[in-house]
């Protein structure tokens, strides 16, 4: 019962203190709002860049063209050989007839040309479309396939793909570092602002110490105060995240400039990010208070 009573009193005292020290509370909350908005932006960017990378990676395939005149049995053997390569997850066979029909469907000009070939003439090769597991090994897999018998050519958008994946990788790493750095900056800023709040109540802490209040009991209301400030400060960033992202998603039509960069659907996603923001606000607020009170406790 006693710990619950102390906890209850700490919460009510923390609440009173937020109201009583209104101007300082506003200062702390404003600081939390600004930094959390930046943190939110960095998180949204980081997760979306990750999504672009994954989306592009999942679209990447290797196209293998068999040599002209390869007979059916050899095509089957080639398929088995490709399938046995560890990095290959999926292999789709497209016969020269399939390709011909596909091209006819795709484009009117192609159709006219292909129709002139007649039934017996088809210069197109048999081909395979291969999906790989590890995109970073795509080059190695392509060259393994190239060395197989009956293979004429292997294409996977070499050069462009690697550069794109590299650029996204760099952006992803930068945003992750930025998120972590921003969280530290937030902690530092909040802890400093709360330090000012607590400095103004140095006497209060001193008196509590002298009359025999335990350090835990002195610290608790301040921890709750930090928690309240953090949670209150995260409300505006949460609203900005939810409404801002939904608006951006709708205005941009679900993609960032081009179809290869699809934005993550806002539902669920914005709520998860909001949850993260509230947790960061609360933890950082509590940490700031903890550090500042410790200074005056003489422990």
């Amino acid at each position: 019962m006693k710990p619950i009573r102390i906890l209850g009193r700490s919460i009510s005292s923390a609440f009173k203190s937020v109201v009583r020290n209104f101007s300082l509370s506003v200062a702390s909350i404003s600081c939390i709002i600004i930094t959390l908005i930046i943190v939110s932006f960095a998180i949204l960017l980081s997760v979306n860049v990750n999504n672009f990378t994954k989306s592009i990676e999942s679209d990447l395939t290797i196209v293998v063209f068999a040599k002209e005149g390869t007979v059916k049995e050899n095509v089957d053997t080639l398929k088995k050989e490709i399938d046995s390569i560890p990095n290959v997850v999926d292999i789709e066979y497209k016969s020269k007839e399939d390709l011909k029909n596909e091209m006819k469907r795709e484009n009117e000009t192609y159709k006219n040309i292909i129709d002139k070939w007649g039934d017996e003439v088809n210069p197109l090769p048999d081909s395979f479309i291969i999906t790989v597991e590890k995109i970073e090994d795509i080059k190695e897999t392509a060259s393994t396939i190239q060395n197989l018998e009956h293979v004429d050519a292997v294409r996977y958008g070499e050069g462009v793909v690697e550069n794109l994946v590299d650029v996204f990788g760099i952006i992803r790493n930068i945003t992750i570092v930025a998120v972590i750095a921003l969280i530290f900056v937030t902690a530092f800023l909040i802890s400093n602002t709360i330090k000012i709040t607590i400095y103004s109540r140095k006497n209060e802490i001193d008196i509590m110490r002298l009359v025999g209040t335990s350090n835990t009991v002195i610290r608790l209301p301040f921890l709750f105060e930090g928690l309240f400030l953090g949670v209150i400060g995260s409300i505006i960033p949460v609203l900005c995240t939810i409404y801002g992202y939904v608006l951006l998603y709708d205005k941009m039509g679900g993609v960032l400039f081009t179809d290869i960069m699809p934005l993550i659907s806002p539902y669920n996603f914005v709520f998860k990010v909001s949850g993260v923001l509230i947790i960061i606000g609360a933890l950082v607020g509590m940490y700031g208070s903890y550090k500042s009170v410790r200074k005056y406790l003489k422990i």
Binding site: R5, R9, M208, V211, G212, T213, V217, I218
Partner: peptide
């Protein structure tokens, strides 16, 4: 009273 409150009295 705050002294006794901080000691956890009812």
């Amino acid at each position: 009273a705050f002294v006794l409150e901080s000691y956890g009295y009812k």
